[in-house]
Design a binder for these strands. Structure first.
Length: 111
DNA sequence: GCAGTGACTAGTA
DNA sequence: ATACTAGCCACTG
């Protein structure tokens, strides 16, 4: 695989890593960035997911922030329902505590 | 080509 | 324990 420097290659890498996250597990933005070959670029992962089309099959819901909480977009869509991401994760077996956070020591994906 | 922006993180108070 | 700040760099206009 060529390590392309173009935006296409970078996005493809990020999406490929996210798709590799198994159901019932979660990964942080920084973790995805590192696995995509761009350690320290967590923001770029978030930006890539932000640009992801709604119809995409990429399980973006399994990517959460380092605090173990789901990240909400800065520009909420009309179709967006708060708690939707959490609901999808719960159906996969990911448990949330009272504060709405995931125990990363338990559910963090360990590739 | 330059300036603004952001689905983040780590550090500090 | 929470709240705020600075740094980070690819993408958009």
């Amino acid at each position: 695989m060529r390590a392309s420097r173009t935006s296409e290659g970078l996005y493809d890498r990020i999406y490929a890593v996210v798709e590799a996250i198994p159901a019932g597990r979660v990964a942080t933005y920084g973790q995805v960035a590192a696995l995509a070959g761009i350690p320290g670029h967590a923001r770029q992962v978030g930006y890539a997911l932000h640009a992801l089309p709604e119809s995409s099959t990429v399980p973006w819901q399994r990517v959460i922030n380092a605090r173990g909480e789901v990240s909400t977009r800065s520009t909420p869509d009309l179709d967006w329902v708060p708690g939707f991401q959490r609901h999808l994760l719960e159906e996969e077996g990911v448990l949330f505590d009272e504060r709405g956070r995931v125990d990363l020591t338990r559910f963090r994906w360990d590739p």
